[in-house]
């Protein structure tokens, strides 16, 4: 165990790569989720179909298969990616498909009257989305996005199979050099767990912020005002 703990710089470097993959992958997934999710709710049937095809295709493929395909098959027809790029692309495309469904569902779940009101107020389509629908929809998206974020972080462990030096690959190296298999894997399981818990706290914080922004929960200023009112009574 002490051998494993004393080589913590190696594990920290691996964890840093895992975190980088998570950040880049989720940034790509977020963009794709909004683009294709909003397409899924479009009025034109063609635009909707494009959104559907993206979602069905990338929800149907396994991340690892996609990654292998990008990494091993595509170079043969002339596209060569750096491993890191292939990994981020595979993670982002895959999680983005799930995210697109979340976005579509959330926008649809905003009460119909809100949409009608925007038409009554003669807002342009972009204004409707930007000022009324999205702020409410985003609050609904956050909890499922949180789950997807953790899924993506967990999914990033497979990049070790295309030789990116993430936490998982570092663990393999450490296993070979120390021979303490059980200890190594226990330690990195705990590291992954800690990362997941931190991500969860982050998402909870954002959920609270979104609620306050929409006036569904009193903010700090309002809370202290309420407190003084209560004290005055």
């Amino acid at each position: 165990m002490s051998d494993v703990l004393s080589s913590y710089p190696l594990l920290l470097r691996g964890a840093w790569v895992t975190i980088q993959l998570t950040v880049y992958g989720s940034a790509l997934a977020l963009v794709l989720a909004f683009v294709f999710g909003l397409m899924g709710g479009a009025r034109s049937a063609w635009v909707r179909a494009v959104g559907r095809v993206y979602v069905e295709f990338f929800r149907g493929t396994a991340t690892l298969v996609l990654m292998y395909w990008l990494f091993y098959a595509l170079p043969l027809i002339g596209f060569r990616f750096a491993p890191m790029f292939a990994a981020v692309l595979a993670l982002g495309l895959n999680v983005g498909a799930y995210g697109a469904e979340v976005v579509r569902g959330a926008v649809k779940a905003v009460p119909k009257a809100q949409f009608e009101a925007t038409i009554a107020l003669n807002m342009r389509p972009w204004q409707r989305l930007r000022r009324v629908l999205l702020p409410q929809a985003v609050a609904l998206m956050l909890p499922p996005f949180g789950n997807l974020l953790i899924e993506l972080m967990k999914g990033s462990a497979v990049v070790s199979l295309i030789s990116i030096a993430d936490l998982m690959l570092r663990a393999q190296q450490l296993r070979q050099s120390t021979g303490q298999t059980t200890a190594v894997f226990l330690v990195i399981l705990v590291i992954y767990f800690v990362i997941a818990q931190v991500l969860q706290l982050l998402v909870r914080y954002m959920e609270r912020r979104a609620d306050i922004m929409l006036g569904r929960r009193p903010g700090r200023a309002a809370r202290s005002a309420l407190d003084t009112l209560g004290a005055a009574k």
Binding site: I150, K154, G155, S156, A157, V158, S160, L161, M168, A171, Q172, R175, T181, T182, F185, L186, I188, L189, Y192, F193, A196, Q197, Q200
Partner: peptide, 21 residues
Amino acid sequence: EFIRSTPLLVQLFFLFFALPS
């Protein structure tokens, strides 16, 4: 919670190498 928030791949390796030991 622990099982859910750690990667399947790591768990597989853990089982593969730790169970025999």
